[in-house]
């Protein structure tokens, strides 16, 4: 029989790549997380993680940082995106470009810049490690919150707003009952883009001399100690959190339209 080449065979190299370098690494960390140094199955690492006040504290601290960062980003980004998308501001889309442009600048350089400013204002960065961390995180992730919010708000059909107004709703009521519920997909996708990176991006903390650990820093320190087992445990816990976030965000995700939005938007959002 003559060999014939099919288009679908082009998927083979990519499938192999995905199995080897995406699936297999996950299996490896699952293996390391549930075994001990002697190669025996063990849940000890997990139990130890949740029994130690130090590591549980780290988890809580990362969640606090992530929640605060996400909330502040949302509070700054929502009005901004709203003004750009809805108030008929001239050249709204050109202005949007200004707001998302920082995404393309290396984040370590941007944080360095902000750090110099904060040093000028505060004198000594080490005095306010927590506040500085939040400021830098917000600075880093704000564009990733503005972008999805803007996309959702521009797509929002104005006739809903007009209908509500015609039916006599006051401005505030229109906002709370019509605009805000309709912008939930944008809020959710913005939150998913900011929350996880702010739990893991420990470089920001390093750069502002915040010596408290977040989840990412734990992986970093286990990595430098060649402790694959505990590092894998942290990775698995983070993966579980990612699963929860993905599950929640899929419930609110926009239809087909949003699955092929500019990949840059998603790409850039995952810098954590």
């Amino acid at each position: 029989m003559k060999y014939t080449f099919h288009r679908k065979q082009l998927a083979i190299p990519y499938a192999i790549f995905l199995i080897l370098f995406v699936i297999l690494p996950l299996l490896v960390i699952i293996f390391y997380a549930f075994t001990n140094d002697n190669g025996q199955v063990s849940f000890h690492n997990f139990i130890a993680f949740f029994q130690s006040g130090k590591t549980v504290g780290t988890l809580l601290y990362s969640i606090v940082i992530a929640v605060l960062t996400t909330l502040i980003c949302l509070l700054i980004a929502y009005p901004t995106a709203f003004l750009l998308a809805k108030t008929g501001m001239r050249s709204g889309s050109a202005l949007l470009l200004l707001f998302v442009l920082p995404m393309w600048i290396n984040f370590t350089l941007r944080i360095t810049a902000l750090k110099e400013i904060l040093t000028l204002i505060e004198g000594n960065l080490a005095l306010h490690p927590f506040a500085n961390t939040i400021i830098c995180m917000v600075y880093d992730f704000l564009p990733f919150m503005i972008m999805p919010l803007y996309n959702t708000l521009t797509k929002l059909d104005d006739s809903y707003i007009e209908a509500a107004q015609d039916l006599g709703a006051k401005k505030s009521l229109v906002f709370w009952r019509v605009i805000l519920p309709l912008s939930v997909p944008g809020i959710v996708s913005g939150v998913t883009m900011v929350f996880l990176p702010s739990m893991t991006n420990y470089v920001v903390l390093d750069m502002v001399y915040n010596s408290t650990y977040i989840m990412g820093s734990l992986i970093g320190s286990y990595f430098s100690a060649y402790d694959w087992h505990n590092g894998s445990v942290i990775s698995i816990i983070l993966l579980l959190i990612i699963c929860v976030i993905t599950f929640i965000s899929n419930r609110y995700a926009e239809g087909e339209e949003d699955s092929h939005v500019n990949p840059l938007k998603k790409a850039e959002a995952r810098k954590g």
């Binding site: 370098f21 420990y202 983070l238 990612i242 976030i245």
Partner: peptide, 14 residues
């Protein structure tokens, strides 16, 4: 969707 820290760490162990 994965955190870069986890991607980097897992590829490194592999």
């Amino acid at each position: 969707v994965n955190a870069d820290v986890v991607t980097g760490f897992s590829v490194c162990i592999l």
